[in-house]
Amino acid sequence: MGFLIVNRISLPVGAPEGEALSLARRRLSSLGVPTRGLSFSVYRRSVDARRKKDIRFLYSVAVTGEMPTVSDARLAAADIARATDPVLPEPVGTEPLFHPPVIVGSGPAGLFAALLLAEHGYAPVVLERGGSVAERRRAVAAFSGTHLLDPETNIQFGAGGAGTFSDGKLITRVNDPLCRYVLSRFTEFGAPEEILTLAKPHIGTDILSLVVERILDRIVALGGEVHYHTKFLSCRTAGERLVGVLTDRGEI
């Protein structure tokens, strides 16, 4: 579904968000667009600290609803952009899948690959060299007290990957609509709604570790499997076909 984004609405720190919505409505009205029936919401908020004595918030406001046609040139002149909600492609195949897909690692990429496969009924098997989130918490606490390192389950290795015990910053240089999809899924599993609008979203380790646990629980609830303390070694092939996955605990 398409919508508009009204950009560069500058307000002093402390001004209510509703003022940003009002200014967005006013800017759209200046183009002759009737705003009755349109919905306005904060799309993004960032801090403009270029002037130390006048720090401000910069807002982008999303506008949804039926509206008359306005040329792209007129929109651009008013610093308004068109946007669309990210749409994930539906899985398409012509042959049945006789074996579950195997995912190596439960970091961000593996976590979301497993989640989407599980939600489409594919019951993935996730191989993770480290331990669960609960095991990682214990290992990290033990290392802080004893300085004895578990080489497989620690602040770097285990459920959720290295980011689980980072400070929870969700920043990327990639400008892709799917970034917002990822953030929305995080909120579904317990992250605060504000990460959808902050220019530099941040969750925090305490919440992020819970989010990772809940995503993994959903994968298992949908029929997937998570094999902790299982290290991928290699693939077994027959000609050009993949026929097995070798781990330090045997073949899958």
Rank of each mutant, 00 (worst) to 15 (best):
G223K: 04
L208C: 10
T205L: 15
C235A: 05
T230Q: 00
D167R: 15
P177S: 03
K231T: 15
R138V: 14
P34M: 11
Y181V: 08
R45Q: 15
V182N: 11
R74M: 11
L216R: 01
E225L: 04
I103V: 13
F186N: 01
I171E: 08
R50V: 01
L115H: 11
P108L: 06
Y122W: 04
L75E: 00
T247Q: 00
D167S: 15
T35Y: 08
P108Q: 15
I207D: 02
P12I: 07
I219E: 06
V13M: 14
D85V: 09
K231V: 14
L196C: 00
R51P: 02
P108S: 07
S209M: 09
D206R: 03
A118T: 02
R136A: 14
K169E: 13
A141D: 05
S144A: 13
Y228P: 03
K52T: 07
R26V: 00
L246N: 09
A78Q: 14
V211L: 09
E194F: 10
E225N: 03
L115C: 12
V87A: 04
H202G: 15
R136S: 09
V126P: 00
K53P: 08
T153R: 11
G244I: 00
K53M: 10
A162E: 05
L170M: 06
R249M: 00
G37M: 01
C179Q: 15
L38R: 03
D248F: 01
P124L: 06
F143Y: 08
H202C: 12
D176T: 13
L170H: 03
L97Y: 14
P68F: 04
A20F: 09
E119F: 07
V133D: 02
V243A: 03
G65M: 03
A49Y: 15
V140M: 03
R214H: 07
P89G: 03
I207H: 02
G107N: 06
G18P: 11
T146G: 07
P68H: 04
A20H: 11
S234N: 12
A221M: 01
I215L: 14
T146D: 09
